[in-house]
Nucleic acid binder design. Structure first.
Lengths: 249, 249
DNA sequence: CGTGTTGTTGAACTGTCTCAAGGACGGTGG
DNA sequence: CCACCGTCCTTGAGACAGTTCAACAACACG
């Protein structure tokens, strides 16, 4: 289905960059040196469209935060999922008519492999196969959680779910709380949570008024992490997932 | 994560049934006769809970329609996805705290393999691996489409998306239209579409009033299929997916 | 120091949710 | 055969929450 084609100029200009890829370490030469795919560095807001017609690929996120966007004709775009360091994204998942694209939310680094090449590698390299399977499972679970979150009617709960997700992925604990960057814009978050940006702004204001969260210049501080988790119906599964995630590395 | 444990008595009572499984055909003996898993026949409404603690499994749907349910404590259950003939479901996708279960919407037949066994088979049997990969990709795409559908604010559009999905999977064309069974109850559909059952009922009534659809005894007749597709924002991706589905077999 | 983008907020509107009442079946038992 | 029951579905009235539109503030950028 999807095929890569960068919308912005020079997506490969840094392709020779020396990357410290986690995926690279477990690989040993077999016959011909195994191809771990093309390195694709992305600047913030740079996008990669899945153009129909070309072959399927697999993207590995080696650094940064990347949004998977979809867009129906005449409709507001949607943020279908968020990819983090270590995630995998097969373009097969993108229906052609959904005009899917990967968009860097922070400066990011991907690796791109042909679908076939990835399958071949999985066949030859058990360690590679293991990592891919683990990454797929994590992504599958995260998608389930996101769906469950979106399905709840309450906007406030969805926002809390999102903040817990971000906090777990990008945050560091501070005294009795947690602190993390919020790389997504309000519109990004709204499109991820299937909410109107105006509504989302109100929800943020409400949380700020309740002293659940403080935000300045894209940096969020949650004074009482436990309280936020109580507000998020899916904090349980999210914490569980984040533990599983960490146990892979 | 998830582990199988049937809630109803005798889930295996028909285990010796001679099944005409598609998955069985491409398998050839290698060392020891390959284990294609335990056959699990399900009566309508029978459920299989993923109990935490036991090992991961992979379920293959060989017949029928099966719902994947999730439930948060104190909350209404959710229908996370619908599985059809040929689908695959790895219990890894079910977060432990989501109390996930498979529920037969019609009488159904599953096959259950240990996660490890499935991986081993994939390693040995390229044809098996190919089928599993194709089924996973189809499921991934369907999940993406479902998420995109749920994310739209309009209930009417979500219902139209659902009807197109069912029509494509279970329907036969009739003169200038389409006809199919609706195995899900109103509540099932509501939980799948993240809508209130009352609201869903109103939406159905509205569609009936518009002569978009007629329903009698669980059988739906859509006189003007094209019109329904125009109402469904995701009919494009759904049709595309259904074609891909058919090309696998 | 404009200019454009991004975020906030109010007022009115629209659609969903909730609750409650009642209808339509389908089964059971007298 | 009919009365009774449970379950599933439908429908109305009112409450509630998200959406829309528009105005404006905050901020970054050139």
């Amino acid at each position: 289905m999807g095929a890569p084609s960068s919308d912005c100029p020079d997506p490969f200009e840094h392709a020779k960059l020396e990357l410290s890829l986690k995926m690279q370490q477990p690989v040993h030469d077999t016959a011909s040196s195994p191809n771990l795919g093309v390195a694709v560095p992305l600047k913030k807001h740079q996008r990669i469209s899945m153009t129909p017609g070309a072959g399927d690929h697999v993207y590995l996120v080696t650094y940064g935060v990347v949004l998977v966007e979809g867009k129906l004709p005449e409709q507001r775009r949607q943020v279908l999922e968020i990819l983090y360091d270590g995630d995998i994204y097969p373009t097969q998942d993108a229906p052609e008519f959904l005009a899917t694209a990967l968009v860097a939310s922070t400066a990011s680094e991907l690796r791109r492999l042909k679908q076939q090449a990835a399958e071949a590698l999985s066949g030859n390299q058990p360690e590679f196969a293991r990592r891919i399977a683990a990454a797929s499972a994590v992504r599958g679970t995260r998608r389930t959680i996101h769906l469950a979150s979106i399905s709840r009617p309450s906007g406030e709960e969805r926002l809390a779910d999102f903040l817990v997700e971000m906090g777990l992925h990008l945050g560091r604990p501070v005294v009795s709380g947690r602190m993390f960057d919020l790389p997504l814009s309000r519109d990004d978050i709204a499109d991820y949570l299937a909410l109107n940006p105006d509504t989302l702004s109100r929800l943020f204001s409400r949380l700020k008024a309740k002293r659940m969260i403080a935000i300045s210049q894209g940096r969020a501080t949650v004074a009482d992490w436990e309280a936020l988790c109580r507000l998020s119906p899916l904090s349980g599964p999210l914490v569980e997932l984040s533990k599983r995630c960490r146990s892979i590395e």
